[in-house]
Design a protein around this nucleic acid. Structure first.
Lengths: 358, 358
DNA sequence: TCCATTCGATAAATCGATTTTTCGTTCTTG
DNA sequence: CAAGAACGAAAAATCGATTTATCGAATGGA
């Protein structure tokens, strides 16, 4: 465990070799666990490694491989709990296999997504875990195909003809939300979302709609979506309520929508669940400490990450079977923000202790 | 822009060289912008690069440099908005300078922190942005010193004798919180935090305490901290309120504490700000959509990231001046969770529409 | 006209590993 | 006892760039 206070140059494999009195090739073999080395020499190598504090340079080590022991991860953002913990999980799983994870944020831009991908291709990453900005049909996946990269698509995808996909079972979870809301007697429900993430959002919407209609054919389901950002969604929602529409429940297909809904409720002085019920896709830590606690669909981050990495490494190791499309089951957390219609005043706002904001 | 559908082997600098009819050295020089190349040959190189779609292999390119064009970032976690956006910012800044950011999560473990650092040292990163789990005196910083790594410490640090540090001006922000609370007439305030992050938390506590005492010498300030995790903090808080302690305001020194406080308020059926006021260090998106909106100290993520990268690159480029300790000013967002004591019932719970949880 | 510069470009060394090839011993076996 | 197989380790090639040393041709001055 000698820590030579030497800060100058790190010892290379040749330093170890000369110190142990063997060749660099032998050192490499010993460290790789090759058994055709005389035990005595192996021991000398281990001693030299210990004495010099030698560690393999991963960069040099990767030089000769076509695929470097690097996994790239591209997420639309890092700021949310979902993608944050996704990166944490992916990092741990890559590390377990001796790979380094390089994570990058596409910042919800497909252009940037492609640039990052090109850079990862430059690095000759062994594989990429891509959470596309929009869906599996974007330019990023096309780039990966065109360059023969191996990868797995996660989250905002359903299935692909070239890559394995792993995502939350949005449709099933949404169906359960439908059962929950219809079961509570709601017959006028507003669904909000961002349409750009086509695949997933559509699955969530259809899963919800078909189940809701199956349970109550006369249910009224309004849908408000916006193309890109949340700003138009907010104003559409404001218009909608402004027109006097009074659904008894709102189902938000994504976290940002849940925030928008809550802030619109605030403006109007509506309380959950007395005035209106709310369920959101995507859970967050704060949702259980607010009053009321917000009902939410919990995505199985661990399972998605773990399954994605399993599939990815299978491909890295050469599996060429047809691509699979996995859907991991979600959990729907019923919380206080969901109630039965009519159990509260639902006055239309303005009569509560807390005045609406200007 | 020919996209050769070739997926086999990427072109190397030698392919470009032979295609342009020059040597690899010339190609390298042209791409590096060396001017001693005949314009005609330079053009041929550019054409070949274009034609083959050649891109430099960053790994091979870095091989000969002592410092690779890689920056390491180590954060205690990725799940929070603060560290999530920190990583996003750092990534962008590194990329601007042609560096790749490799981010890793220490998961609040000093052991892991050191392991990650060792791995980054193996990669010969040019520099490290370290947000230590505890403070600047931990084993990670010691490791960096012992191995002559260049780095910057951020967030949970105040100053260091070897590294530049950048953090939010916790003391000043806390003083402003004190002014706010004292100004609103609070004379019994509870401060909660995690003691492990010694430097920062102590600065926040002292900044608050000294300002509060200066404004009202008879103010009562209770402090509850826990060593490592939030669980003991939660039970201490529960005991504290259970003993009948009734501060009129709570100042949480960190986000997790804010969540704990809110959930304890929930249990007891206390509402902000009628029953008790709340301010938290660290802002989050959801805090403005809850009812009430939660007052919070906003940390200057962009400034911290940008300043950290500036300092880091100065060091990477060889600056050897004495280490600096920067404090970036915070913004205190006054929101509805803060009121004046006595303006609400403060009954001690149980009399509100929403019953406390079991 | 001849030698000394200068210019531009190539050959070769280098970075730090891995992998293939080569080579010298020792052990079998006919 | 000699030829061949088996073994262990060293030498050399390789990965893809950068950088230094080298070299030939053109230019300049004496």
């Amino acid at each position: 465990m000698a820590q030579p206070e030497a800060r100058q140059r790190r010892p290379s494999i040749h330093d170890v070799a000369s110190h142990a009195g063997v060749s660099a090739a032998t050192v490499s073999k010993v460290l790789a666990g090759v058994t055709t080395v005389k035990p005595e020499n192996a021991q000398r190598v281990f001693d030299a490694v210990e004495h010099l504090g030698y560690r393999v340079d991963p960069l040099a080590s990767d030089m000769r491989r076509a695929k470097r022991r690097i996994i790239g991860a591209i997420m639309p953002e890092f700021e949310s709990e979902f993608f944050g913990s996704m990166v944490t999980e992916l990092e741990g799983l890559a590390e377990q296999r001796g790979y380094t994870l390089v994570a990058a944020s596409s910042r919800e831009s497909e252009t940037r997504e492609k640039e990052i991908l090109a850079r990862m291709h430059d690095w000759r990453v062994a594989g990429v875990v891509l959470a596309p900005v929009r869906n599996e049909h974007g330019p990023a996946a096309a780039f990966m195909k065109a360059h023969g990269m191996t990868g797995v698509l996660i989250d905002r995808v359903l299935s692909d003809d070239a890559f394995d996909t792993v995502s939350a079972d949005s449709a099933a979870a949404s169906a359960e939300v439908a059962r929950m809301l219809i079961g509570n007697g709601h017959s006028h429900i507003l669904v909000i979302g961002l349409a750009e993430q086509a695949a997933t959002v559509r699955a969530r919407l259809e899963g919800f709609r078909s189940q809701a209609l199956a349970l109550n054919p006369s249910v009224r389901i309004d849908v408000i979506t916006s193309e890109v950002s949340v700003a138009p969604l907010r104003s559409s929602l404001r218009d909608y309520f402004g027109r006097g529409e009074r659904p008894t429940a709102v189902y938000s297909l994504l976290l940002k929508g849940t925030l928008v809904a809550l802030s619109e409720f605030r403006r109007r002085g509506w309380h959950c669940p007395d005035d209106i019920s709310l369920v959101g896709f995507d859970d967050a830590e704060w949702m259980q400490v607010t009053w009321p606690a917000i009902a939410a669909v919990v995505q199985p981050v661990r399972q998605i990450a773990s399954e994605a990495m399993n599939l990815l490494f299978r491909r890295v190791e050469g599996d060429v079977g047809p691509p699979t499309a996995r859907l991991e089951p979600c959990q729907v957390l019923m919380r206080e923000s969901v109630g039965s219609p009519g159990s509260g005043p639902h006055s239309g706002g303005g009569d509560r202790q807390q005045p609406p904001l200007s």
